Amino acid sequence: MLKFYKKFIIGILISFSLFALNLFLLSIKNVSTDVIITTRALSIVIGGIYFTIIISDGVREALERKPTKSTAVVIVPNIVKYLGYILVFIGVLAVFGVTSAEALAGGTFAGLVLGLALQPVLENFFAGILIITTGFVSIGDHIRILNSQIPYMPANLPPYKFFSREYIEQGLEGTVAEIDLFYSRLILENGREFRIPNSLLLKSSVVDYTSKLSKKLYVSIRVEFPLDKVDLNSLLEEVKEELKDFEIEEGPYLSEQSDKENVIVSLRIVTDVDNWKKAKSEALKRLLLLRSRIIKAVTINKT
């Protein structure tokens, strides 16, 4: 990717080329006025849009270098971009000799027509403004989008996939990478980029896994123990002793039977949001090792 100053130099060269083209057309006697005006308007469009894009990108890169990122990373570059587009539009009108009164009258009529024709586009535009200004979601948030218009649902089989789940959150999970005025970008867990229209995002329920209000997460764990190998009177105390390093929020309980030959021990531990998978893995490993030791001890005693 070219650095900002290199892009700026390229923009200067493009501007000089367009300026030279306009001077060349002016020097030719047989060229009509319409051609000259059209060429001048195209020059403003090409040069204006190019500089608008590189300046907004430069502002974005400068803001992203700051250690503390905020909504300014999204708001300021977008303001620069759309102000640039407005200036280009005004410049083109000036070239064609459109007065302010004519522009206002034409803009009113065009606004009504375009407002009806571009209703979905405008809906995304204003939804983007609301998302950015209210902080509905922010860049860097790890979220899950829940919406009936997104065709995602949990697999029905095999049921053991959701053995320890108290509830299943359907939808898309990912990290917010960018919020534009028309759509937002999410990087999904598999690394793919998902682009969602802002109007759909604003209408969705969002689960924020990086909430600023809650730093704790409650994780459920369930493990089967064979009924013919365990002492039900002491099993729960053994589980507590095995997990004495964890903060147990609820349980352990003998929650239910499985196939009439096993009893399921369930509990909930408290962990921080960032390391809950590691904590659940460690707690589950300890309980599986406990089960293995119990089974091995009973087998040795019987032999």
Rank of each mutant, 00 (worst) to 15 (best):
residue 40 R to D: 13
residue 255 S to M: 08
residue 227 L to C: 05
residue 185 R to P: 00
residue 143 I to S: 06
residue 174 G to N: 07
residue 20 A to Y: 04
residue 50 Y to S: 01
residue 46 I to T: 14
residue 118 L to M: 08
residue 83 L to W: 00
residue 140 G to N: 05
residue 111 G to W: 00
residue 92 V to T: 13
residue 120 P to E: 02
residue 253 Y to P: 03
residue 135 G to Q: 04
residue 278 K to T: 14
residue 300 I to V: 15
residue 145 I to F: 09
residue 154 P to I: 10
residue 200 L to W: 03
residue 142 H to G: 03
residue 43 S to C: 05
residue 220 S to C: 14
residue 152 Y to I: 12
residue 194 F to V: 07
residue 98 V to M: 09
residue 147 N to F: 07
residue 133 T to N: 09
residue 222 R to I: 04
residue 156 N to S: 06
residue 116 L to N: 08
residue 158 P to Y: 14
residue 152 Y to K: 08
residue 267 L to D: 09
residue 217 L to C: 14
residue 242 E to S: 13
residue 165 R to P: 11
residue 106 G to R: 05
residue 105 A to T: 09
residue 261 E to C: 10
residue 300 I to P: 06
residue 301 N to S: 13
residue 2 L to Y: 07
residue 257 Q to Y: 12
residue 151 P to R: 12
residue 7 K to G: 00
residue 301 N to E: 15
residue 2 L to K: 04
residue 103 A to E: 00
residue 66 K to L: 11
residue 24 F to I: 05
residue 66 K to H: 11
residue 89 F to K: 05
residue 50 Y to M: 01
residue 167 Y to D: 13
residue 154 P to K: 14
residue 202 L to V: 04
residue 296 K to A: 12
residue 99 T to E: 02
residue 170 Q to I: 13
residue 20 A to T: 05
residue 278 K to E: 15
residue 273 V to K: 13
residue 236 L to V: 01
residue 103 A to L: 12
residue 140 G to L: 08
residue 173 E to H: 12
residue 103 A to W: 07
residue 271 T to P: 05
residue 262 N to W: 10
residue 43 S to I: 04
residue 82 Y to F: 04
residue 210 T to M: 07
residue 66 K to R: 11
residue 120 P to Q: 02
residue 8 F to S: 05
residue 191 G to L: 04
residue 207 V to K: 15
residue 294 I to P: 01
residue 27 S to F: 03
residue 96 F to N: 00
residue 127 A to K: 03
residue 222 R to T: 07
residue 49 I to Q: 00
residue 67 P to N: 08
residue 10 I to T: 04
residue 68 T to W: 07
residue 271 T to A: 15
residue 186 L to M: 04
residue 166 E to T: 11
residue 267 L to I: 10
residue 63 L to N: 06
residue 264 I to C: 06
residue 77 P to R: 01
residue 163 F to H: 13
residue 138 S to I: 11
residue 35 V to A: 11
residue 139 I to P: 08
residue 93 L to I: 09
residue 95 V to H: 06
residue 113 V to Q: 03
residue 65 R to W: 07
residue 38 T to A: 11
residue 25 L to Y: 11
